[in-house]
Design a protein around this nucleic acid. Structure first.
Lengths: 151, 151
DNA sequence: GCGCGAAAGTTCAAATCTGAACAACAAGTA
DNA sequence: TACTTGTTGTTCAGATTTGAACTTTCGCGC
């Protein structure tokens, strides 16, 4: 509590810019996905992760960690996606406690249909505005923080 | 829809890192604020903005834009902060439709008490891990996106 | 002065998120 | 084998967010 280390102008500018931008971009993405496919951003991320996974399936806990969401939120969202026919639950062969979330064919098609429009937003507002150098610096910077927070 | 521009590995790495990091950091901050002061991150941001504003007061809409939250969410949060005695509502002299959110003395003291712990988290996971150069590059990159999204 | 499109805040219903509590199972130890 | 500790996924209650609908007020052109 003693001698607080405040942020100097450069640090403050960086933090403010990061904070505002992440929230603004999140809102824009949410809006695009909702209007284009009726999906939320977490739901879209779930589909992406599953599509990238071996056999298009993943354990619930691992998936929750990847998408950065609580276990209960994932339970809820997988149920929603199951109702929509995009994902199915399967029992885990190696662990009777476990549940596998599996991407269905319909889910894969949905993802392929939605991805272009989503990527266009990510490009238009972020990726395409940065130089190669800025992209790499950002990756390096973000990775440090991500690593530190994964504990 | 024709010829989708996918993200190459460098672009994808940058986007993934940004996305995960912002969510992880958000969760960590939320946790710290909740346990240290019973505040949510949006609530804390409201106090910060008001403390920085002339006369410690701001119009609702302007405040909502600053914190990047919907008008209805701000209405809700200001009501919460009012119950806690940290903020008050005042009528706007120049516009009868308007409402001013005003930071109380208790609100200012609360902020001064909570800020150090909050900044420690921002430093520990983000700011202190970046070089001066990375900080500046990040600010430049984020500002481009922020600017593009403020429309 | 009048009317009219735009803006400010609030209210409301619906959806979502989180943490705590819980039940079932795993894995290692005595 | 029986115990103990930790993990997994779900359920539940409570808090929060969002967009749409609505009321009131501005600002302007006529």
């Amino acid at each position: 509590m003693t001698d607080t280390r405040w942020l100097d102008p450069t640090e403050m500018a960086a933090w403010r810019a990061f904070l505002s931008t992440s929230h603004l971009l999140e809102r824009r993405i949410e809006e695009q996905l909702k209007s284009a496919a009726g999906l939320t951003h977490p739901q879209y991320e779930i589909l992406v992760r599953l599509a990238d996974a071996p056999d298009r399936q993943m354990r619930m806990t691992e998936l929750a960690r990847g998408v950065v969401v609580s276990k209960s939120a994932l339970t809820y969202q997988i149920t929603q996606l199951e109702k929509a026919g995009l994902v199915e639950r399967a029992t885990c062969p190696s662990d009777d406690r476990g549940v596998l979330a599996v991407l269905t064919d319909a889910g894969m098609r949905c993802l392929e249909r939605v991805a272009p429009g989503h990527l266009e937003v990510v490009r238009a507002y972020l990726i395409d505005r940065l130089t190669r150098d800025e992209l790499e610096t950002m990756t390096r910077a973000m990775s440090k923080t991500e690593q530190a927070l994964r504990d």
